[in-house]
Design a binder for these strands. Structure first.
Lengths: 208, 208
DNA sequence: GCAGTTGTTGACCTTTAAGTCAGTAAGTAA
DNA sequence: TTACTTACTGACTTAAAGGTCAACAACTGC
């Protein structure tokens, strides 16, 4: 007799993560409302019923996607800051470079586009995201700038504004690529841009 | 006898623009899929049937919103460039300042957030937007930078990268405000940021 | 005024996708 | 093998929103 391969397997532990991964990529591509749970299930290799076995409803799945995907990314930067010795400009570049790298690899950075699109529809989730992700990321960069100023390495600029000037260009380019990769005839390389942005900005930041 | 005010009026010419305006503000706030046509109609002071009198379906309304709203904004910048005399850095600041002003006033700049969110769901519209709006805006700024370089006012930087470095920060801050105004506890003023960004960037751009 | 035209309504139909659950088959242990 | 548990399926129900259209009432011209 042939040993028939089972039509499906029981994989209770792996399912949630797989469903979240599938949901992430479809939410990022199409948006929350335009994504059908049948499609999420299909991409995760299960059926819709299974999705509802692990998540109470579509909104809870969305929240899980944001929570599970976003938090791991910040901690590495915070360790870098804690352990850093030497010029603050170098740390700034290290942070930007790592960020650009991660943007090219993992799908998780697509969350920023997703949150921008859906923030108004999920106020509580937006608040969670702003507090746990945005403010923390800003603090990280703000710290570097502040210490650079204190060390006499940077001019005494407005830190809140400078922080945004440092973060926003890379973020915008990434969000842009996420949305218009198919039709932008003049794309730029993320790392090239990160380097260019860093050098341009450093001129204005450095003390004379 | 009292002259009864009619329950509604026939205003064939004004309806399309009013419906488009209503749709714009709801699309920007909630996204395309999450916006109900009943709500658009209500906000425009009509009923759903009237919306379908002027637009074939929801998708055509969306296209009309993008087309009608976005085009008028670019031309003024192009005239400024054509008529400019003097330092190119000054023109750069004029363009950025006007852009920041318009962002604070008209709702039309919310289109960028909308297109970012929906580009993948409307490939043809995304192509139209990229070609008619994005590329044209980039060309405008690229021209200023190129002429500044030719005049020896700016260093010979990579124009494509510099253009994005100039545009993206303001755009990101605007998109951000659009999405997180309710829960961002550390908002920045658009004009302040525009000025800060301009001065920071100019340091890196200027020839020595 | 009155008759004819048409912009507008609102109840209705239709489609789509969220959410449910009884049944099925993959695993497990004796 | 068999008896049992439960992860998983897929057809079903339901709700909501897109889309339609016959009737209506605001205008127009005579």
């Amino acid at each position: 007799m042939n040993t028939p391969t089972p039509r499906w397997q029981r994989r209770k532990d792996a399912r949630p993560a797989e469903i979240i991964e599938a949901a992430l990529s479809l939410f990022v591509e199409r948006g929350f409302a335009a994504t059908r749970l049948d499609d999420v299930a299909k991409l995760a290799g299960v059926t819709k019923g299974t999705v509802y076995l692990y998540f109470a409803n579509k909104e809870e799945l969305f929240k899980a996607v944001v929570r599970e995907t976003v938090l791991p990314n910040i901690e590495s930067g915070e360790t870098l800051l804690a352990e850093h010795q030497g010029r603050w400009a170098d740390l700034l570049w290290t942070l930007l470079e790592r960020w650009a790298e991660r943007m090219e690899q993992s799908a998780s950075t697509g969350i920023s586009k997703l949150m921008i699109a859906e923030a108004n529809n999920f106020p509580e989730l937006a608040r969670f995201y702003v507090e746990e992700v945005v403010i923390r990321s800003r603090k990280l960069f703000a710290n570097v700038i502040e210490r650079g100023i204190a060390a006499g390495e940077f001019r005494p600029v407005d830190v809140a504004l400078a922080t945004r000037a440092v973060i926003s260009p890379l973020m915008m380019i990434k969000v842009w690529k996420q949305s218009f990769s198919l039709c932008d005839t003049e794309p730029v390389d993320l790392r090239d841009f990160a380097r260019f942005h860093y050098e341009l900005m450093l001129q204005g930041l450095q003390a004379r």
